[in-house]
Amino acid sequence: MFTGIVEELGEIVAVESLADSARLTIRGPLVTEDAVHGASIAVNGVCLTVVETKDGAFTADVMRETLDRSSLGGLTAGSRVNLERPVRLSDRLGGHLVQGHVDGVGTLLSREPGERWDVVTFALPPGLARYVVDKGSITIDGVSLTVVRAEADRFSVSLIPTTLELTTLGRKQPGDPVNLEVDVVAKYVERMLGERA
């Protein structure tokens, strides 16, 4: 479980494409300082398992399902990524509950720069709009954010200077894909209410 508070802006060192998977090597000295084989690290909001660590970098295997359902398949050496270690039970929950399970890939539609922040609008994949509400939580590339406005096929968020500077969202441009994870509580509520009907 994660919180959507990015700890470090990492970099893809290498991508090894295999028949039905890929092996990513990612530089992230902070998140690897206590990582061991089998540990979880969220990469752009996708929970990956550490296979190896060496010199401030870690390697993770990514199966075809994950490559197909997230934007990780488009990463290349030099790509910047948001990194977060899982939350400890004793930590504060600074963002919201994030599983690291991508629900869909959205597309950045527009950026409206403000004096100190940007309002950014993203397209929603079909079927996710029912989980996105004004002032609700959403995770974009592993970043916990509050929805400013939700519509049938899109939503907008405001990015403060810290988010613009310390995450990949400050560098994304219209047309760029992003990993989306909707609020897990909304999915569970829908499931429970559906079973009552």
Rank of each mutant, 00 (worst) to 15 (best):
P86L: 11
V87H: 01
V87L: 15
V87P: 05
V87A: 14
V87G: 06
V87Q: 12
V87S: 13
V87W: 07
R88N: 08
R88S: 10
R88M: 09
L89T: 14
L89G: 08
L89H: 09
L89F: 13
S90Q: 12
S90C: 08
S90N: 09
D91A: 02
D91S: 06
D91Y: 05
R92K: 12
R92N: 03
R92S: 10
L93V: 14
L93T: 03
L93H: 01
L93D: 06
L93F: 09
L93R: 01
G94L: 06
G94P: 09
G94W: 10
G94R: 07
G94I: 07
G94H: 04
G95F: 05
G95S: 01
G95I: 02
H96A: 00
L97C: 11
L97A: 08
V98H: 03
V98W: 05
V98M: 13
V98D: 01
Q99T: 10
Q99P: 06
Q99V: 01
G100P: 00
G100S: 11
G100C: 03
H101W: 03
H101N: 12
H101D: 06
H101V: 01
H101Y: 06
H101S: 02
V102Y: 00
V102A: 04
V102D: 05
V102W: 06
V102I: 10
V102S: 02
V102G: 04
D103T: 02
D103E: 02
D103M: 04
D103S: 00
G104E: 00
G104R: 02
G104I: 06
V105S: 01
V105P: 00
V105R: 04
V105A: 01
V105N: 05
V105Q: 03
V105W: 02
V105H: 00
T107K: 13
T107S: 08
T107I: 14
T107C: 13
T107Q: 15
L108M: 15
L108F: 09
L108G: 12
L108D: 10
L109R: 11
L109Q: 15
L109N: 13
L109F: 01
S110F: 00
S110L: 08
S110K: 08
R111E: 03
R111T: 04
R111A: 05
E112Q: 15
E112K: 10
E112S: 14
E112T: 15
P113N: 03
P113H: 04
P113C: 01
G114K: 07
G114N: 08
G114W: 01
G114R: 06
G114F: 07
G114M: 06
E115I: 09
R116F: 07
R116W: 07
R116M: 11
R116N: 11
R116S: 15
R116P: 02
R116C: 06
W117G: 01
D118E: 13
D118Y: 11
D118Q: 15
D118T: 14
D118L: 09
V119F: 00
V119W: 00
V120H: 00
T121G: 03
T121D: 07
T121M: 07
T121L: 05
F122G: 10
F122V: 12
F122H: 10
F122P: 13
A123E: 08
A123C: 08
